[in-house]
């Protein structure tokens, strides 16, 4: 029998990210990375690079912006 583990994901709003790198550093699974593209305000922004989110919230609490980044659970 296989146990279906919970599935999580991180969503980033590119134009709200200021590219500070805090979430990238905080993530225990290293699934976030700062990209080379610039957003509307000229900041490089974070992208999800691996689909291995464990839903811990470290990225969310480390991010200084209110809604640049959010963690979702698939139900």
């Amino acid at each position: 029998m296989t146990v279906k583990s919970k599935k999580f994901t991180v969503k980033i709003i590119a134009d709200e990210c200021k590219g500070c790198n805090r979430c990238v550093k905080a993530c225990p699974k290293n699934i976030l990375a700062l990209g080379n593209d610039l957003n509307r305000f000229g900041f490089p922004y974070v992208k999800l690079v691996k689909d291995e989110c464990i839903g811990c919230g470290a990225c969310y609490y480390s991010c200084p912006e209110p809604s640049a980044l959010a963690v979702y659970e698939e139900v």
Binding site: E16, G19, F43, Y61, P64, E65, A68
Partner: peptide
């Protein structure tokens, strides 16, 4: 024009505390 972001510089600790407080 900016209505979703805060005025703080990138990486500023204020934003982190603001989120905890909110």
């Amino acid at each position: 024009a900016i209505k979703k972001n805060m005025h703080y510089c990138p990486g500023c600790g204020h934003g982190i505390l603001h989120k905890l407080l909110a």
